[in-house]
Design a protein around this nucleic acid. Structure first.
Lengths: 226, 226
DNA sequence: CTTGAAATTAATTAAGGTATTAATTAATTT
DNA sequence: AAATTAATTAATACCTTAATTAATTTCAAG
């Protein structure tokens, strides 16, 4: 829990520090709590406490609780989205494209502890409170381009024809963000310690590349360098 | 919205109907609302209204809102869990086992509209309100048996060695429950209509079987009979 | 220095939610 | 029948939370 310097602050304007510091602190506190507890279960008082200010500050820096959500998407989530969906070189083959996306997902959002649970819960889940706001910022053109590339690959016989191009991105999320979001869960299942982002990346890539089948039947484990 | 006969009911004990009817109605209403809005965002008053009774009934049939969650897990979720994890014949090969699980997931939980979102949001997600309750009912032995079978298959060179056995079940959920839970989302993305449970099953099975690669390079689409 | 704007806390208010109790009617037992 | 138990609504007390306002302190510009 927020190990910020929590000396009880008196009333009045505080001594000069980084400008906008408390605003940033509120956004960070909100992101963390939302990731851990979900948005609906988090009160403004909790956010303020974790940020080291009072609840009134939420209404000073933002118009209210709802506007805080807008600001969070704008300031913390949109940049990560842009990072993942940055353009790939023209003509990148589908398999390579997918692998790039997996790597980016695990290097950006995957390293932001609050993001995977927040994404799963508040964007993908039915009735999630960030759905509309994030939906409006999805890079639709990029998504469609990937779908088209997959379909083209299928037509040329280079991509598994039983795959549904429009489900592929969701599968990607299911193989990366979902395991990350549930990390706290399997810690309590017997014998499931020591699964880190690297393991998730290897597993996801392996599954996407070859499915359950061995890469070349009969070989030993392929040691993936890093 | 609950198309039950909603004639305003007077005070006092109602005329005999199915015994325990209002209790069941409350559980159904809770499941539906929880699936659509999430647990934290659903009030007892909403549940009661959808069930056609007053909020006081929640405290009559259950000890309170919290005990309602226990009852929901017991009466509505545990049976679905048991159905999915019913034993498979001794010695079933890994690939077939996985395919059985995919089919069961889509035929049981997958046909229960409220379950996928509820599972994603309240079981898998960090801080989900059903986590502890469901965790206590997971068929740990079954899960471990599957993990062991996968590891054995890898040792014999029959299963992709880069897969992480302990992540496989989660991957299964990511390829089945997650797309179902987000069905409401892609309805609003351009050109993504008409993806039903059948399509999800085909996509998931294809991905698990062969990954992105065509089954036998150069062939046309394999028409999967059903 | 003085004055107005900025950043913050404390205190208050209003809305909404859960749980509780009393009253009411139907069913069951004696 | 009479008494008791079961199922239900209505009213309300209590608590939590979001939002507002007033007071307080610091900063920056003339």
């Amino acid at each position: 829990m927020a190990t910020t310097t929590r000396r009880p602050r008196g009333q009045g304007r505080p001594h000069a520090s980084a400008p906008g510091a408390s605003r940033e602190a509120l956004l960070d506190a909100a992101a963390g709590l939302f990731g851990r507890q979900g948005i609906a279960a988090t009160t403004t008082a909790q956010i303020a406490a974790e940020a080291g200010v009072t609840a009134a500050m939420v209404h000073y820096h933002f118009a209210g609780r709802d506007a805080l959500l807008d600001a969070l998407v704008e300031a913390r989530i949109a940049p990560l989205l842009a990072q993942v969906w940055a353009p790939v070189p023209e003509g990148t083959p589908v398999a390579a494209w997918i692998e790039i996306l997996v790597r980016r997902l695990l290097e950006g959002p995957g390293r932001t502890p609050w993001l995977p649970p927040l994404w799963i819960r508040e964007v993908l889940s039915e009735g999630g409170l960030l759905r509309e706001r994030v939906l409006a910022r999805l890079p639709v053109a990029q998504l469609q381009a990937l779908g088209a590339a997959v379909a083209a690959g299928q037509a040329r016989g280079e991509v598994n024809p039983d795959l549904e191009p429009r489900l592929l991105v969701l599968s990607l999320l299911g193989l990366t963000m979902l395991p990350l979001a549930t990390a706290g869960l399997w810690g309590r299942l017997p014998g499931a310690a020591g699964i880190d982002a690297e393991a998730i990346a290897r597993h996801a890539t392996a599954l996407l590349t070859a499915g359950l089948r061995p890469d070349r039947p009969g070989r030993g484990p392929t040691r993936r360098s890093r």
